[in-house]
């Protein structure tokens, strides 16, 4: 469909160019500008030109890597992870804390364990803005996620993929719902999904290299991908003192 639209727009461009050959500058470049502002057209040298900014991740290194200088707004971000406990939540908690401070609701769908209130409060998350959902079954889970994303009431939705892999159509629906509701959508999925295509705006593979959290940028809409980044864990956690045992 996109290619059809592109074709039509190109045709219009061509028509205008042929009918008004004498007109210089602005009128001709207007459709081109329109074309260039489309988010699905990738431009190499678009770094400074585009003013669209994302929501800051709270990690400067990661912000610099992302085209929107933060998590893409109103879109799905996929985080592919196999092993819990390598710092995947601390990657997004600064953003969640900021959102709850602004009074937006944050929804967790099917978290693998209990979100521990003292740790979240320490990180600055306003607990009364946090809603945890445990829908039964895949259908209810997707329904709840889509409704919450669409509603416009929630600032971020974090979802953990259950046993079944959602179909491509369903992932696309979630992405559209996030766009309609202007909501950050984080989707934690197992690393085996890396090969399957996904409509997400950003895909990050998270692994641990022993000490640090290793990020591998798999896909980024209108931006480069393939970069790797290592983020250190909180020094308070990995500080080594001599335990008695």
């Amino acid at each position: 469909m996109n290619s059809a639209e592109n074709f039509l727009q190109n045709k219009q461009l061509g028509k205008q160019a042929s009918s008004e050959p004498a007109q210089p500058g602005p009128i001709q470049s207007q459709p081109l500008q329109q074309l260039l502002t489309r988010p699905d057209i990738w431009q190499l040298a678009s770094g400074q030109r585009r003013p669209r900014t994302g929501v800051s991740t709270g990690y400067r290194g990661l912000d610099a890597l992302l085209t929107s200088h933060g998590w893409p707004r109103a879109a799905t971000t996929e985080l592919l992870i196999d092993k819990a406990g390598i710092g995947e939540m601390s990657l997004i908690i600064p953003t969640l804390a900021e959102l709850t401070r602004q009074g937006r609701m944050v929804i967790l769908v099917n978290p693998p364990h209990i979100p521990y209130a003292p740790a979240l409060a320490q990180a600055g998350v306003q607990l009364e803005k946090l809603l945890i959902l445990h829908p039964r079954g895949q259908r209810d889970q997707l329904w709840a996620a889509e409704q919450s994303l669409q509603s416009g009431a929630c600032g971020a939705l974090i979802q953990w993929q259950g046993k079944e892999t959602p179909a491509d159509k369903e992932l696309r629906r979630l992405q559209l719902a996030a766009r309609d509701g202007d909501c950050l959508h984080f989707h934690f999925r197992p690393g085996s999904c890396a090969q399957a295509p996904s409509p997400a705006a950003l895909r990050l593979q998270l692994q641990s290299d022993g000490e640090q959290l290793a990020l591998h940028l798999l896909k980024q809409l209108s931006g480069k991908s393939g970069q790797r980044l290592h983020l250190a864990r909180n020094p308070n956690l990995v500080r080594r003192d001599q335990p008695l045992h």
């Binding site: 209130a117 607990l127 946090l130 809603l131 945890i132 829908p135």
Partner: peptide
């Protein structure tokens, strides 16, 4: 749709 028990929050 999900029932009362599917929704919760956390407090200290």
């Amino acid at each position: 749709r999900l029932g009362h028990q599917a929704l919760s929050g956390v407090t200290l």
